[in-house]
Amino acid sequence: MQAEQILTNARIVTSEWEFVGTLVLRDGLITQVQEGISSLPQAHNLGGDYLLPGLVELHTDNLEKYMSPRPGVDWPPISAVLTHDAQIASAGITTVFDALAIGDVNPRGKRMQQLPAMLEAIAEATAAGHLRADHRLHLRCELCHPDTLAVFRDLVDHPQVALVSVMDHSPGQRQFAKEDKYREYYIGKYHLSEAEMDTFVREQQANSIEFSDRYRRAIVEDCHARGLSVASHDDATLAHVQESAGFGMAIAEFPTTLEAAKASHELGLMVLMGAPNIVRGGSHSGNIAAAELARHGVLDILSSDYYPASLLQAALLLAGQDNGYDLPRAIASVSRVPAKAAGLDDRGEIRVGLRADLVQAQVHAGQAVIQQVWRQAKRVF
């Protein structure tokens, strides 16, 4: 049993409005939400700071940078997980879906070799109670890799797996419909020669033809049989979206065109875009800007992707643009809506009966400065 906590003089943001008020927390839950400031001596005065629901992150590969902090350097997995977790919590993220890649599109990459170690380290740290955030697993399935289906089936029944996405990063389609952008990205990121790049392109295209459609169908069927949410990835055309909707997918990750985003929204898929896209003002791949989707009212979820601190920052920027997203709606895109899309009904907003996952933040010149973070009423930052 946790002692009752009272947080007062906070600018509370619920799913519908914002007001100066007070929260009462007990046994890890929100038990009262009140307007006005409490005069009780045991109340913690938050000085007028924002009090937000804990952020819910559905797609981040942030752990990978701590597993391999430099080329040729392999970091101890438990240490990498704890460092990643500390950064996640400090960004206000209280529920995180660690995106573990099955199938590596980097010809020199270590994702497949690191996968078992990352999985084991997350599970071990979770079981030991060492993690600040609630960690779930998101299996990112690269369909044009020959081993993807077999590895997916080895991992899908892990108890922390809660989300699966299917993707095809072969050149000439989806994220890389423009092959020049594909070449620019991979040559720059992986330091390939032109000859190596030519070979890589041919191999990826051949693998896509051989495996992609068959693996997509098999993986989606396995997920539905287990009640797992499934996300599409980089849909670019109406045909892509219709296929995703036909497979019963819940989330459309990073649609690359306005046409695909609008169609996804209309067919009931939650549209997820990168928070860095909002912060930077556009896509690094030359695709549709997330802010443009917001102006059309078809942006549902933001994900920090590769930069955890971008999540709250992007929500604040979104609320300040001319797009119909007020602060409650913008904050919902990083809390309530992703929680709902992942099937988590016990968190994601400030409401009586839900988990007391909370973030206290100040805003200076548009920049979020996080002061405290609570997970189930326990302070974790």
Rank of each mutant, 00 (worst) to 15 (best):
G248E: 12
R226Y: 07
L131D: 06
D27Y: 12
A3W: 10
R329E: 13
V73R: 09
S165H: 03
M197S: 10
L192G: 01
R216T: 00
M167C: 04
H130W: 15
Q371H: 11
H59Q: 09
A361N: 04
T8V: 01
T31I: 11
K65G: 04
L302W: 07
A330D: 08
I93M: 06
L311M: 10
P41Q: 06
V363G: 04
A290Q: 03
A231F: 03
A121E: 03
T95F: 07
A206S: 07
C144A: 15
R214D: 10
R295I: 01
A356P: 05
T31Q: 02
V359Q: 02
H130P: 05
I219Q: 01
T60M: 15
E18A: 15
R174W: 06
R153F: 13
N277S: 14
A125W: 08
Y190C: 11
N277F: 03
S285E: 10
L23C: 04
S333R: 06
G48Q: 11
V161H: 00
M118G: 00
M249T: 03
V164G: 00
T237N: 03
L55I: 10
E349W: 02
V363P: 02
D61T: 10
I30R: 04
P276D: 06
V352G: 08
S165I: 02
R336L: 15
R183P: 08
V166R: 00
M118K: 07
L100R: 02
F176N: 13
F247A: 13
V220K: 05
I102Q: 06
L23H: 00
R136L: 15
A236E: 14
P107D: 09
D98C: 03
D300Q: 15
D198H: 09
D154Y: 11
E266A: 14
L55E: 06
E266K: 10
A128N: 09
L119K: 10
T14N: 15
A231E: 02
N277T: 06
Q371M: 14
P171G: 14
Q113L: 13
Y325P: 01
P107Q: 07
G227R: 05
V166S: 04
Q114A: 14
F97Q: 02
V352P: 08
L29W: 01
A341S: 08
L143T: 04
H135Y: 12
R108S: 09
E221K: 09
P41G: 04
L137H: 14
E292N: 12
D234P: 05
H364R: 10
D27Q: 13
F381Q: 09
K65M: 05
P255R: 05
L46C: 14
V220H: 05
K262Q: 15
G172D: 10
Q367A: 13
R183Q: 11
V363H: 00
P41C: 07
H145G: 02
N207P: 07
V81W: 02
P53Y: 12
R214N: 14
K181D: 11
V151Q: 13
S244P: 00
G72E: 06
L269M: 14
Q360C: 11
L149P: 02
G47W: 12
P76V: 13
Q34D: 09
H233I: 04
R336G: 10
